[in-house]
Nucleic acid binder design. Structure first.
Lengths: 150, 150
DNA sequence: ACCATACTTCAACAATGGTTCAGGTCCGCT
DNA sequence: AGCGGACCTGAACCATTGTTGAAGTATGGT
């Protein structure tokens, strides 16, 4: 019957249990500026409930291979003042779905190329589409100069 | 007119230039057992030409996010004795294309779920399909226990 | 034979995404 | 008031995937 009922804030342990993310990772996210908390008089973290959504968002992004730095940038698009609402989340999620679509298309192109390459048994470096994704080939003498750009 | 013509072996610099992968990375790959070289009497590396394919294979795999340890396992399926032929490469590439297909399907499921979630504005942690990908929900009281397994 | 260039090793450092531990403090229940 | 469990910080450590630099050696062309 203490203040714990007040706004139903979450301790780091609560958040860890509900999200399945270890407390150590949550502290790390806070250090990185992905989530925030207020502190009690005794210096303990208290998270507002919408942090649960932020953490869900972070983990979903991570499953897709998006680095935390980028996740942070996207989360920064949420309003600071008020608790993000349904529409706010829809907005950032959409941004993010586009990213996912790009990744899927990229992988599909890669797979299609690979299927061709299996057909010809190549991976031939000099001619293979897979190995020369940037089409930066054919204007500087024989042989490829680069396999891959990244 | 020295021995350099012999079998057209590549120095680490040659390989770096032709593959677009820095020498430092190539040495690293060798340390990790992903590629091999013989040594000259002066202890310098000489790579056989098929190493170019191996490196191409490694970089393509990396673009998809496959860790080197796994790439190593797949490359280990190539014959040690002889130079891998067309069919050998087709075999390992196929193995690998399946992996790609799985990843694509996974991402598509993720995106479909996300699209639904944008529809409902949720990412609601307790009910959202995205946040509960393992369907391990609904048999232990209210509220999700885990957001994500990996 | 000489010299520039490329090569060698080893160690240290970098970024990402955390975990673990030590030493100490706080919270809430009885 | 006391106690156990949860929380705090900071530093050290882990794996992955390399890069950079120092100090020394080899190779190949003139």
């Amino acid at each position: 019957m203490t203040v714990s009922w007040q706004a139903r804030e979450l301790t780091v342990g609560d958040l860890a249990e509900r999200s399945g993310v270890p407390s150590s990772a949550l502290r790390f996210y806070e250090r990185q500026g992905l989530i925030r908390s207020r502190r009690t008089s005794g210096n303990q973290r208290r998270f507002s409930r919408d942090t649960l959504r932020r953490v869900a968002f972070i983990r979903v992004a991570q499953r897709v291979g998006i680095p935390l730095s980028r996740v942070k940038d996207v989360l920064a698009l949420l309003p600071e003042e008020r608790t993000p609402n349904r529409e706010d989340w829809a907005r950032v999620s959409a941004w993010w779905r586009d990213d996912l679509t790009d990744r899927i298309e990229h992988l599909q192109r890669l797979r299609d190329n690979l299927t061709e390459c299996i057909g010809c048994g190549c991976l031939s470096i000099d001619r293979c589409a897979l190995a020369n994704p940037c089409d930066s080939l054919g204007d500087e003498g024989p042989g490829a100069r680069r396999l891959l750009s990244p």
